[in-house]
C-alpha cells in the first residue's frame, strides 16, 4: 500500500520536474558565460547588463507596461459595472445572454480573435495604433476582471452591509461609494493584477493587432528568437518570470477567501 503511495508521489514529483524544467534551465543559463554552447562555462552577469543597455528592449518594456496598465484599467471599469448589474440588480431579461457573452473571450481561440480584430480594424479604416491594441487587450482581460469582482460581490451580498447603509438613510450611490466599492476593492485589485499579467504576456493578439510601430515585450522576444538562441533572452525571461511571480504573489495577497465576507 505505501509502495503505491510512494510510487505515485515519485511520479507527481517527476511531472512537476517536467513542468519546471524549462524555468530552471532558463534561470541557470542566464548566468552562463557562453554564447552558443549549453555547457557551463562560468558565472556571469553580462547578459543582464546587456539587457539594461539595450534601448530597443527598454522601450518595448515600457510599451508593454503602458499597454498592460491601460488594458487592466479599461477591463476593471467595464468589469465592475457589468458585475455590479449582474449580481446586485434583480434578475432581468437577457441576463443569461450577457453571462454567456462575457465568457466568450475565454473560449475563443486567440488566433481567431486576433485575425478577427485585424480584419475588422483594417476594414473599418481604423489605424492599428496603441489605442486599438489596448482596447483589444481589454477584451481578453474582461472575463478575468468580471470573475474576480463578481465572486466578491456575491459574497458581500450575504453580509447585506449595503442594505444596512441604506436603511440608515444612505442613497444607493452613497452606499456604493462608501460601502460596496471599498469592500470590493481587494477583488478589483486582484482582477486588475490578473488582467495586467494576461496583457503583459499576450503574444498572439499583439502579433496580429499591433501595427508596425508598436513593439511589445513578447513581440520583441519573438523577433529575437527568430535570430536564434542568445543568452540575453534567458536573462530577459528570468526578469519577466520574477515580475510574473511578484504579480501572482500580490494577486494571492488580494484574492478573496470564501470565509472572509462573513467576518465583516
Amino acid at each position: 500500500m505505501s509502495k503505491t503511495k510512494r510510487g505515485m508521489a515519485a511520479y507527481v514529483a517527476a511531472l512537476f520536474g517536467f513542468l519546471y524544467l524549462p524555468l530552471g534551465v532558463m534561470f541557470v543559463f542566464s548566468f552562463n558565460d557562453a554564447r552558443r554552447n549549453v555547457v557551463w562555462r562560468g558565472f556571469t552577469l553580462k547578459w543582464y547588463k546587456a539587457l539594461f543597455h539595450d534601448a530597443e528592449l527598454m522601450s518595448a518594456m515600457l510599451t508593454s507596461l503602458e499597454l498592460a496598465a491601460a488594458a487592466a484599467a479599461i477591463a476593471a471599469i467595464l468589469g465592475i459595472l457589468a458585475s455590479y448589474a449582474m449580481v446586485k440588480h434583480k434578475p432581468f431579461r437577457g441576463r443569461g445572454a450577457y453571462d454567456a457573452l462575457l465568457n466568450v473571450p475565454l473560449m475563443m481561440p486567440e488566433v481567431a480573435l486576433g485575425v478577427g480584430l485585424l480584419t475588422f480594424l483594417v476594414r473599418a479604416g481604423y489605424e492599428l495604433d496603441f489605442t486599438a491594441l489596448a482596447c483589444s487587450h481589454a477584451l481578453i482581460c474582461l472575463p478575468y476582471t468580471v470573475a474576480a469582482v463578481r465572486a466578491r460581490l456575491i459574497s458581500l451580498q450575504e453580509s447585506s452591509l449595503e442594505d444596512a447603509a441604506m436603511d440608515l438613510g444612505a442613497t444607493e450611490w452613497q452606499a456604493f461609494v462608501k460601502v460596496t466599492l471599498p469592500l470590493a476593492m481587494p477583488a478589483i485589485i486582484s482582477g486588475a493584477l490578473l488582467s495586467f499579467t494576461v496583457s503583459f504576456q499576450d503574444f498572439v493578439t499583439s502579433f496580429f493587432v499591433a501595427g508596425i510601430g508598436i513593439v511589445t515585450m513578447p513581440i520583441k522576444i519573438y523577433s529575437m528568437m527568430k535570430f536564434g538562441v542568445t543568452p540575453e533572452i534567458n536573462a530577459l525571461s528570468v526578469c519577466l518570470l520574477l515580475a510574473t511571480f511578484t504579480l501572482i504573489g500580490l494577486n494571492a495577497a488580494f484574492a478573496v477567501r470564501p470565509d472572509e465576507a462573513s467576518r465583516h
Binding site: 524555468l23 532558463m26 499579467t197 504576456q201 503574444f203 538562441v229 533572452i233 525571461s237
Partner: peptide, 17 residues
C-alpha cells in the same frame, strides 16, 4: 505557475533543451 509564465518564454527554453 508555469502556465502563468509566458508560453513564449517556456517554449524558448524548450528550444535550448
Amino acid at each position: 505557475v508555469p502556465f502563468w509564465s509566458s508560453c513564449l518564454v517556456a517554449y524558448y527554453s524548450w528550444m535550448i533543451v
